[in-house]
Amino acid sequence: MALALLFSGQGAQKVGMGRSLYEQSAAARARFDEADSILGWSLTRTCFEGPEEELTQTKVCQPALYVHGLALLAALEEQGKLSATAAGASQPSPRYALGLSLGEITAYAAAGVFDFATGLRLVAERGRLMQHACEQTVGSMAAILGESREAVAVLCKEFDIEAANFNAPGQIIVSGEREKVAAAVAASKAAGKKVIPLNVAGAYHSRLMESARAAFADVLREVEFSRPAFTVFTNTTGRAISDPEELRAALAAQVVSSVLWEDCMRSAVAAGASEFWELGPGGVLAGLARRTEKSWAVKSFSEFDDLAK
């Protein structure tokens, strides 16, 4: 089996995430406890108890999803379901990793580009900077369903908005100034297209996040990046990258760039991935995978009971 790990993006979080892992896996508990120590506040309590309004904040949910993903990885290794290295292992070991938006940082950490603590500090700062950018701008997002990339490109040009996510065939997210997105939604609905406004704090993966990108790029310059231990795919390119400087540049650019998630998934399959394991709450990425290609083998792991799959 050529295994690819998938890590969740913002929006997958839910109150209670990780509680059973914490209670039943020493390895997962160590991740949550280390995160609380590094952050200086109880991410663990917010994950387990909420309130939902607090967990949903960009500066909270981004580190929460990062920690949850790597806690699942640690628990799978502890349970003997997954090997950190391929040498002499009877259980599967990851050969590929990819993450949606903030999940790309989780994928980098899983592949050893930087350690857990470094990645946590990065994702916490990314979340803080993006929340600040949201508070300084008036943006929104919407899902365009059943349309081609070309049709959405025309819509974006007409209303001066941007394509934020290419999640799966017929599922594209647009992003931009609230009034412009609202006008695009209204025009699309009038034309009989299926469009869903999203309940988000701002215009992620658009030029409205430029202040966050610039500040995050400065933060990234202070961090040492290593070559990944296995193949990682980047949202901005939709392909595999291994050079540390290219990985650094991709993380910074991603804040204002389109997330080419469908491209990443197809590139992983083309590279040889034969099974995907989603490590995160809700099974969102498994759903996108099945929408892209029903024949792909995908498992979702969210809580301790899932480790028996």
Rank of each mutant, 00 (worst) to 15 (best):
L3C: 00
L5I: 03
F7N: 02
S8C: 13
K14E: 15
K14A: 14
G16R: 03
G16E: 10
M17H: 07
Y22Q: 03
E23M: 00
E23C: 07
Q24N: 07
R31K: 11
S37V: 11
G40D: 08
R45P: 01
T46G: 04
E53V: 12
L55Q: 04
Q57Y: 14
K59V: 11
K59D: 14
P63Y: 10
G69Q: 01
L73S: 05
Q79L: 04
K81F: 05
S90T: 15
Q91I: 13
R95M: 15
Y96D: 06
A97P: 00
S101E: 12
T106S: 08
Y108W: 13
A110K: 09
A111I: 10
V113F: 15
V113Q: 10
T118R: 06
L122D: 09
A124N: 02
E125R: 10
R128M: 00
R128P: 01
Q131N: 05
H132P: 04
A143N: 09
G146V: 03
E150L: 12
A151S: 05
C156R: 00
C156L: 08
C156E: 08
F159C: 00
F159L: 00
N165Q: 08
N167V: 06
S175V: 12
G176A: 02
E177T: 12
V181P: 08
A183C: 06
A190K: 01
A191G: 06
G192P: 00
G202E: 05
A203N: 03
Y204A: 00
S206M: 05
M209D: 03
M209T: 04
A217Y: 12
E224V: 13
S226F: 06
A229P: 01
A229Y: 13
A240T: 09
E245A: 10
A249M: 03
A250N: 06
A253P: 03
V259E: 04
W261C: 00
C264P: 02
P281I: 13
L285G: 13
A289M: 12
R290I: 13
K294E: 15
S295F: 06
S295C: 02
F301T: 02
F304K: 02
D305A: 12
D305T: 14
